[in-house]
């Protein structure tokens, strides 16, 4: 780890100024990802600006029935919050499916959105990786590829986004509030994470110095049932092979509305707009679930080690939709 200066700004604007004005500076919140990356040599900031005391850590009701989650809210406080458990149970479920009790006590909402891929080559500085070192090549294309993306990847990068929380928030149509040097802006979560394209080193649309201050969730859909299901190689404390967050409303035996997002399949949490479109207005049948999920993965591209992800994602999606539409389930 290279030496760095540590500072605690007085407020969020000061924090933004400190990072925006110094290309070597970065924000520190829970540190669960960043401190590890500094040890591994993946990140080498020369200044850390601690934002834990300058971003809100409260969950508040918004007029109109939504909630605002302060970016400093820890994953454990958010998962346990009564408003979240009651109105957005799939978000609690997603958070509780991630990491361990200790990590959830440290990790924050803002930091969770900014966590980086767990691709083994990204985390191993002895191997080429375009995300870590632009232009060096992608080791995952030919190497161990079990975790690789199946949707939206590029020839430069096949990494997947590791967050559970973000997948649930994406299905909930969350909006990210950002403070930058020129003021505040809001970014729909659907536009927040990038696909790798030619610049896999950029995970999100944030500019250097922009700070996540909160995440807003719109009012929950009346009558919708929702869940988060994560498939992984251990019963606990493992990243997703595939995960599905879904909300479904049924009226008169037909799917009135649905919102579906996948984790573990792409460089960003993946909103399944095609599957949603196929399902809207359709009768609740197993065939509809499968046709919709298959439509979402019609353009999936797989390699030697990750072809299993496509049927796994389709089957998991169909199972989730079945469980959410069972009459007495």
């Amino acid at each position: 780890m290279i030496p760095f200066v540590y500072s605690r700004p007085g407020d969020a604007a000061e924090a933004v100024e400190a990072v925006a004005g110094d290309p070597g500076a970065t924000f520190l919140a829970g540190g669960t990802n960043l401190v590890d990356h500094m040890k591994l040599g993946i990140a080498s900031p020369t200044a850390l600006v601690d934002v834990r005391e300058v971003v809100d850590d409260a969950v508040e009701e918004l007029p109109g029935g939504g909630v605002r989650i302060g970016a400093g809210t820890t994953n454990s406080e958010l998962a346990a919050h009564p408003l979240v458990r009651r109105r957005y149970p799939l978000l609690s479920s997603a958070l509780l499916a991630g990491a361990s009790g200790q990590l959830r006590n440290m990790a924050t909402t803002g930091g969770n959105l900014l966590q980086r891929t767990r691709c083994v080559y990204f985390q191993d500085v002895t191997t080429p990786c375009n995300k870590r070192e632009p232009g060096s090549g992608c080791s995952a294309l030919e190497g161990h590829g079990r975790d690789n993306a199946v949707l939206g990847a590029s020839e430069r990068c096949v990494a997947t986004h590791p967050s559970d929380m973000a997948v649930a928030m994406l299905a909930l149509d969350a909006e990210v509030r950002v403070l930058g040097p020129s003021g505040e802006r809001r970014v729909p979560l659907a536009d927040f994470h990038r696909l790798p394209g030619a610049e896999p080193e950029r995970d999100t649309v944030l500019e250097h110095g922009e700070l996540i201050t909160a995440v807003d969730l719109p009012a929950p859909q009346e009558g919708a049932r929702s869940t988060y299901r994560k498939v992984r190689e251990r019963a606990s404390y493992a990243f997703a092979l595939v995960s599905v967050a879904a909300l479904v409303s049924v009226r008169g035996g037909q799917i009135a509305d649905t919102r579906i997002a996948f984790g573990g399949v792409a460089h960003a949490p993946w909103r399944a707009r095609r599957a949603e479109e196929v399902l809207r207005g359709r009768p609740v049948t197993e065939t509809a679930f499968r046709v919709a999920a298959e439509a979402e993965f019609a353009e999936a591209r797989t390699g030697r080690d990750n072809a299993f992800k496509v049927p796994l994602a389709i089957n998991t999606c169909a199972a989730v939709l079945r469980s959410l539409t069972e009459v007495n389930g």
Partner: peptide
Amino acid sequence: TVLLAGRRVLACLALAVA
């Protein structure tokens, strides 16, 4: 694992200065 103000956390990922 240690308790920080009563909460369990991982001391290896916490910076002392913070």
